[in-house]
Simulated scan of single mutants.
Amino acid sequence: MDKALYPYLLFWSIGLLCVLAEWRFPARPIAYRSVFWRDLIALGLYNVSFLAVVQATDRIPIPNYMPAALYSLPTVVKLALFYIVEDFGLYWVHRLMHTKPVWRIHRWHHSPTSLYWLAGIRATIPHIALFNLTYIIALPLLHEASAWAFQVIMVEHIVRNNWMHLNVTWRSSWLEWVFVTPRYHQIHHSTDPAHQRANLGALLTIWDRLFGTYYNPDDVKAELSFGLVERVPPVRLVIGL
Rank of each mutant, 00 (worst) to 15 (best):
A222E: 05
L90A: 04
A119I: 13
A222D: 04
T124F: 14
W148Y: 15
T169M: 05
S34E: 11
Y215N: 05
V85R: 04
H127S: 02
A42N: 14
L45G: 13
H195N: 00
K3Y: 08
A194G: 09
L90F: 09
L43N: 08
L5N: 05
P67R: 12
H143E: 01
R28V: 09
T169C: 06
M154C: 05
L70H: 07
L73K: 00
W174C: 15
Q55S: 06
K221M: 08
Y83S: 03
V85K: 00
H165K: 13
L16N: 06
V102G: 01
I136M: 02
T57C: 03
L115M: 13
L45K: 09
I121F: 12
T124A: 15
L73Q: 01
F179T: 11
E144A: 00
V232E: 15
P217Y: 09
E22M: 12
G227S: 06
Y46Q: 11
G240F: 13
V35Q: 05
E86R: 00
V229F: 13
L79F: 11
E144W: 02
V178H: 15
N132C: 07
L139T: 01
V48L: 01
T169F: 11
R33A: 08
V229A: 12
S172P: 06
R197L: 09
D208Q: 05
V76F: 10
F226G: 13
W148A: 13
W108C: 06
F150D: 02
E176L: 14
D219W: 08
F88K: 10
N162Q: 15
R236M: 09
H110C: 08
A68M: 12
D218C: 05
D39N: 03
P112C: 13
N162H: 14
E223R: 14
V152A: 03
F211N: 03
F82E: 04
W117F: 08
Y8H: 03
W103Q: 09
Y91D: 10
D58R: 02
R59I: 01
D58L: 01
S34C: 07
W177N: 12
V35G: 06
T57M: 02
A42K: 07
F150H: 00
F88C: 15
W174S: 15
N64D: 05
C18D: 13
G240L: 07
V19D: 13
Y215H: 12
V178E: 15
N199M: 10
P29M: 07
Y6H: 15
A31Q: 09
T124M: 14
L241C: 03
A123R: 10
P29T: 12
L133M: 12
H188C: 08
P193C: 07
A222T: 07
H189S: 10
N162C: 13
L210N: 07
W92E: 01
V76T: 08
H98G: 03
G120I: 11
P74Y: 04
R104E: 08
K221A: 10
A138H: 03
M1D: 13
P112F: 14
A202T: 06
H185G: 01
R107W: 06
L40T: 14
R28G: 05
L139A: 03
L10R: 06
Y214K: 04
L43W: 14
N162T: 08
H189T: 11
S190D: 11
Q186M: 12
L79D: 04
V159R: 01
L228I: 04
N162E: 10
W163A: 02
S114E: 04
E156T: 03
H110L: 08
P140H: 03
L96T: 12
P26Q: 10
Y65T: 00
W163E: 03
T134G: 06
T124S: 15
I62Q: 00
T113R: 15
